[in-house]
Structure formats: C-alpha cells, structure tokens
Design a protein around this nucleic acid. Structure first.
Lengths: 156, 156
DNA sequence: CTCAGTGCAAATATTTTGCACTATG
DNA sequence: CATAGTGCAAAATATTTGCACTGAG
C-alpha cells in the first residue's frame, strides 16, 4: 500500500518561502508578504483572513500562494464543516489536528496508535489505503473557563 | 467528558422521513421526495446532485431538508477538501468513513481501537474532547481495476 | 528582455435568505 | 384556517479565471 507517501520528511524547519522556492517558484514581494504573515500568525487561519490582513496583496495571489504551499506540503488544509477551510503550518511530518469548537484554535498531535489502527484496518478494507485524516474536536483549556457559544458545529 | 454524546442510539433502521417527524417537522410532498431520493441512491451525494435529480423541488428546500437530516443525525456531512460536501446516510451509530479518491464511493466502518485511541488521547490533550472525525482515503476494489485519474485530492 | 507572477474584475460555485404563495395538520 | 413549509430570485460567501500589466532573473 502507498501509506508511505504520507511520511516524506520535511526537515528544514518552518520556512514557507523555501518551500515555494523548492518548487521552482520565484521569490516575489507578494509571496514574501503572504508567507511572512502566515509565519507571524500563531495558529490556523482562513484565506479570507489573510486577504484582510494583507490589503496590498490581491485576493487571487493570496489564494494562489496558499494553494502552492498546500501542494508543497507546507500547509495543511483543514475542512471546516460550515464555511471556509482553515490552514495551518505543517510542523511535524504526519499528524492530526485538534480543533477547539469554541475559539477555533488548531493544535497538532501525533499518535502512534493511529498508525497502528490504519495497519489493522488495511486488512478489513476492500481496496488500497492511500491516506487518512483525523480531527479531534475539543473545548480547549482556555475556553473551558469561559461560556461562549460554539463557533463551529461539531458534527461527527 | 462529553464523548457519550456521540453514541445516541438510532435504532429504528433507515427511515429518513421518520427522523424528520421525530423532530416535529411536517411530512410534506417536497420532504418525502427528498428523503425518498436519498434512500434510493446507493451511496453518498451532494446537495447539488439532489437538486438536479429533483427538478420539481426548490433548491432551498433541498438544502433545508438536508440540514434537518444532518441535525437529526440521520445524515453525515463529509467535508470534501475541494468543492461541495457530500452526505451519506448514517447507518450505524458512531462510525467513520472510507472515501474512494477515484470514484468518490463512501463506505462506513467502525473500529473499537479508534475509540480506545480517543481515551488515551484524552490524557494528553489540554481541554475536553467533544468529538472526533476520521476519514480513510482509499482506492476502492473496483477502481483498482481501472486507470482513471483521481476525482478528489487527498490531502492528509 | 522575457515570461512568471500580479491585481483587478468578472465568472463560477455553493449556500442562505427575503418574501409572497401554498398546503399540512 | 393558522402557520409551517415552499419556490423563486436575489444576496451572501468562497474561490477561480481571463487578461492586461509588472517585475524577477
């Protein structure tokens, strides 16, 4: 099976500009603005959020740059059930996400058991496993002390 | 933790009309057309597909009915990374999905180990786990015998 | 200088909403 | 017959594309 596809090493640390250059893309002002902004953000973000933060960069360029970064494996695209997907920097090689349903904070985790589950499922499934995705919806520590209503619907 | 929320029993088998009635919604012609069509379909579908199949039912009604069914827990909403989400009937209580990246076929599976992983993760995570989602991307048995290009991008 | 990259606006895609009309209970 | 539900069209939201212009190499 092709599961090893998911384990390419991304060793150089977090440098989104390099990720683009590695793909043969030019280092332009607009791209530097986008990658710089993403690296400056603490957590996950939406494309629209980035457009708002960077009024000097055209919306199309923001979307195009995000797509390049996702293709390069430098960003993860997280499907949010309602509304626009969120993106987060892929800090570790293969991982899963925690999403706080109140504040939207995204975390990453790895868990070897998840990979073991995959291997045992391979036997039961008719076909080849080519990848998997897992998200854990949480109420994060800081939100537990507040009483806001949910930001995202958590449908599992 | 509130994980038990995910385990409500849906015992009466697959009857989408009943699921709506249970929520105090009227049994109307449009709703019967939508639920009938969904039950008639073999697998997962998109809202737009349903609109196409049911030209006699207004687009808004299709979307509204789908939303009711999702709220009732009778349908699962599967976020597809590119494009519209897909829906599939929730046949078993708590489960996960396999999605064929070529033909889009959606399957369901349960795996007790997944639940065990959740319990062990609960200790590591700062906050309360309120749900989780897991999708396995596969090339299904029938697609293995063909040589089409992928229908969905598989980003993990 | 050349062509990859950009910004803008228009196009596309998806879903929701306002509102007058219809039909269920 | 009251009002939940419907259909339509317009609005809202999210993203992509065409195209003339700009700038990186």
């Amino acid at each position: 099976m092709a599961a090893s596809l998911m384990l390419e090493t991304e060793s150089r640390g977090i440098n989104l500009s390099n990720a683009l250059e590695d793909r043969g893309l030019r280092r332009t002002g607009a791209r530097t603005a986008v990658t710089g902004r993403i690296e400056h953000l603490s957590g996950a973000f939406t494309a629209e959020q980035l457009c708002r933060d960077l009024p000097g960069v055209g919306r199309a360029t923001v979307y195009r740059t995000i797509r390049h970064l996702v293709d390069a494996g430098a960003l993860c695209k997280l499907p949010i059930l309602d509304g626009a997907p969120m993106y987060s920097i892929a800090r570790v090689e293969h991982h899963h996400h925690t999403i706080c349903s109140r504040c939207g904070a995204v975390g990453e985790f790895r868990h070897s058991t998840v990979e073991r589950v995959m291997r045992s499922l391979a036997k039961e499934i008719d076909g080849d496993i080519i990848g998997h995705r897992m998200e854990i919806f949480i109420t994060c520590g800081s939100c537990l002390n507040e009483s806001t209503t949910g930001k995202f619907s958590v449908h599992v």
